[in-house]
């Protein structure tokens, strides 16, 4: 390498250095240290004492760890696909050229701008079993009839009936689905990304399909969705990461209750780290969480070869 090239590298690194230093100090070093702490007994104020794989071994035997992991996966199973479908559906509707399109787009995006704590407080009132708007609406005659119908079907197959008014956040059976339902409140960001993706769907392909006699559904299925698949893939990856790290909303709204029905992985991690002062144990949990997210992301990447289409290829 010539002297000029070295100089240029030096300059480049100098310009990058604020980020590089920030990344090293605030991300890389803590990540590496957390791996070390995960094999230590560490309480922040006592020096870390090496204990090998004891934290990981203890975690495998910990019923609360299993409960929090199960809750998180259940939440992801409900919130992730439903969230992707709801946001995609909204984006498709908002892409239709109608009067007031910008207004509708703004309305859908608006909830994403509400701070987390404010949203949580608002939804706590909406979910209030006695005074909440949701149960008030469900008490209207058509919904009462609908619930009676569902109960009749449930009764036929000997399944538990829906008790009204529903204790959205106080009934262990409803609390987790309620939080998953609430997650749709923040789909605005995903909708915007889908909308941007929809503008990139080649109009000539849609026109060709239309000339060939394809209806709206076939155009959606055979042209729009394949062309949108890289965006869906991106949103899927972000949703996997987001849903498996769910923390703030349940922490504020339910505190993990009732009876740990909404006690998620990250909440148990937080409690171990900052309330029980078991940093080593919490670090081991963080690494397990990372591995789970990594594995699910890897599966998504592997599967993407079969369903994600890039225009350039």
């Amino acid at each position: 390498m010539t002297r000029t090239e070295w100089k240029q590298i030096g300059k480049g690194l100098a310009f990058c250095s604020p980020w590089l230093i920030g990344f090293m100090v605030f991300t890389l070093i803590p990540v590496v240290l957390s791996l070390y702490y995960s094999v230590c007994d560490y309480s922040l104020l006592q020096p870390p004492a090496y204990i090998g794989g004891a934290n990981y071994h203890e975690l495998l035997d910990d019923p609360i760890f299993r409960k929090s992991l199960t809750n998180t996966l259940l939440y992801a199973i409900i919130a992730l696909p439903a969230g992707l479908m709801v946001s995609l559906g909204l984006a498709l509707l908002l892409n239709v050229k109608v009067a007031g399109q910008t207004f509708y787009r703004t309305v859908i995006f608006l909830p994403s701008l509400v701070p987390t704590v404010a949203s949580a407080m608002l939804w706590m009132w909406l979910f209030n079993a006695k005074l909440g708007l949701i149960n008030t609406v469900l008490d209207w005659l058509p919904f009462r009839l609908l619930i009676a119908g569902i109960n009749a079907i449930l009764g036929l197959v000997h399944l538990p009936q829906i008790e009204t008014p529903i204790g959205w956040l106080t009934n262990p059976a409803w609390a987790l689905p309620a939080l998953a339902f609430m997650s749709f409140w923040g789909v605005g960001h995903t909708v915007v990304i889908y909308l941007a993706g929809l503008q990139d769907v080649p109009s000539e392909l849609l026109e060709s399909a239309e000339i060939d006699g394809a209806g709206m559904t076939r155009r959606l299925w055979h042209v729009t969705l394949p062309m949108l698949s890289p965006v869906i893939f991106f949103n899927l990856i972000m949703a996997i990461i987001g849903t498996l790290q769910v923390f703030a909303i349940p922490y504020i709204m339910t505190g993990g209750g009732p009876a740990r029905a909404t006690y998620f992985f990250t909440m148990y991690l937080y409690d171990n780290a900052f309330r029980y002062l078991k940093m080593g144990y919490a670090s081991a949990m963080a690494w397990i969480q990372l591995l789970i997210i990594l594995a699910l992301t890897a599966i998504a990447f592997w599967s993407s070869r079969k369903w994600v289409y890039y225009q350039g290829k």
Binding site: N128, A129, K130, L131, P165, G167, T170
Partner: peptide
């Protein structure tokens, strides 16, 4: 239990 939960919900 159900009556009590409904009551405390409010």
């Amino acid at each position: 239990k159900d009556s009590m939960t409904e009551f405390t919900n409010g």
